[in-house]
């Protein structure tokens, strides 16, 4: 899931080398933390969070088989 989020983020931003994705494991959930360059925040969030929502939708589809809930947080 880290690779998926990283790939999508890198394909949207101007500074792909500054994309950083970490996986944080909790008891009942997996949190994917996405960090990008400050200038690129808009590129992964979008107007009214439209891009962020699309990323979350794709991740949700890809994690159907996981037994834990997977959430994406943009930090």
């Amino acid at each position: 899931m880290v690779e998926l989020v990283s790939f999508i983020a890198r394909s949207l931003v101007d500074n792909p080398e500054q994309v950083d994705v970490q996986r944080v494991e909790e008891d009942d959930a997996i949190i994917i933390e996405l960090r990008v360059a400050p200038d690129d925040m808009g590129k992964v969030i979008g107007k009214q969070g439209r891009i962020a929502k699309a990323i979350r939708t794709v991740v949700k589809a890809a994690s159907l088989k996981e037994d834990k809930r997977v959430t994406v947080e943009i930090i």
């Binding site: 999508i8 394909s11 949207l12 439209r50 891009i51 929502k53 699309a54 990323i55 939708t57 794709v58 949700k60 589809a61």
Partner: peptide, 13 residues
């Protein structure tokens, strides 16, 4: 919903 999300992200990229 997922198809639209994939389409949107592909278009942007």
């Amino acid at each position: 919903e997922t198809l639209d999300a994939v389409q949107y992200l592909t278009g942007l990229s």
